[in-house]
Design a protein around this nucleic acid. Structure first.
Length: 259
DNA sequence: ATGGCTGGTTCGACCAGA
């Protein structure tokens, strides 16, 4: 089974590339983030025509997540346990489903904007709620993984030049501690192969030739429990999808499982 | 063979992304 996660940065603009990528990659289960569409505008029919069911949570703003599956889609759940609100709204940033015997949760962790900004405190609260929500599933004896855009680089080598990140979000001790607490529920970091260069970056800024110069970050992560990790045959970043006109600024992370 | 932002919204300057 092939499972992947991809921040598509607007499913509306990216639909043709999404459909082409699904066919080219042969992905069975795909966790999507940053849909930027209303739930009613999600391309359910186009995906169904290609054999994929979809669990979608979206509200038309800068978030929105989904799980696509062509191997079954059951036990869909949305909200975090005691999940925080931002400016009074509970945002659609996660959805979980069981697909072909694997429990997956797609996450789009809040960006944080700046240290000290209310969005940064929200990000840390959101990660704490994620930990509480996934703890029982992580402890299960069946394969489970949290996949998505975590907006945190787990270590200094997960950004192209750590010296440029002083005082910035995505690399702070508090954010990394939140990831460590998440892993303590029984989840391990499934680190993908980069396919080119030495580090498996998953995001490159659109500006200043970020991709050609490989000024990237590894912020799209796959955290799997022991039964999931045991089934992993391969994992890689599909950087080909970052190329060309009309690419998302994130590349898909692909994981192959032998169940 | 990869190119100096892109997408969405308040319809066109501004916000958010990271």
């Amino acid at each position: 089974m092939r499972i992947a996660t991809w921040n598509v940065n607007s499913v509306t603009v990216r639909l043709d590339r999404l459909l082409a990528w699904l066919e080219r990659s042969g992905t069975d289960v795909l966790c999507l983030q940053e849909l930027k569409c209303e739930a009613a505008a999600f391309p359910t029919e186009a995906l169904r025509a290609r054999g994929y069911e979809a669990a979608v949570r979206a509200d038309g703003r800068w978030n929105g997540v989904a799980v696509l599956s062509r191997v079954g889609l059951a036990d869909v759940s949305g909200e975090l346990v005691d999940g925080p609100a931002y400016e009074g709204a509970t945002e659609p940033r996660t959805v979980a489903a069981t697909c072909g015997g694997v429990r997956v949760r797609s996450v789009y962790v809040p960006n944080g904007r700046e240290i000290g900004h209310p969005h940064y405190a929200y990000k840390l609260r959101w990660l704490a709620a994620l930990r509480e929500t996934v703890a029982p599933e992580a402890a299960a004896g069946t394969p489970f993984a949290v996949l998505g855009d975590f907006n945190v680089a787990p270590a200094d080598e997960d950004v192209w030049d750590i010296s440029l990140f002083e005082g910035a979000t995505h690399v702070t001790e508090a954010e990394r501690n939140a990831l460590a607490a998440l892993r303590e529920t029984g989840l391990g970091d499934i680190v993908p192969r980069p396919l080119k260069y030495d580090r498996p970056f998953t995001y490159w800024d659109y500006r200043q030739l970020g991709f050609p110069k490989n000024r990237g970050m590894r912020i799209d992560l796959v955290y799997g429990n022991a039964p999931f990790a045991k089934a992993v045959q391969d994992a890689f970043v599909d950087r080909e999808e970052r190329k060309g006109k009309g690419a998302s600024d994130h590349a898909p992370v692909v994981v192959d499982l032998e169940l």
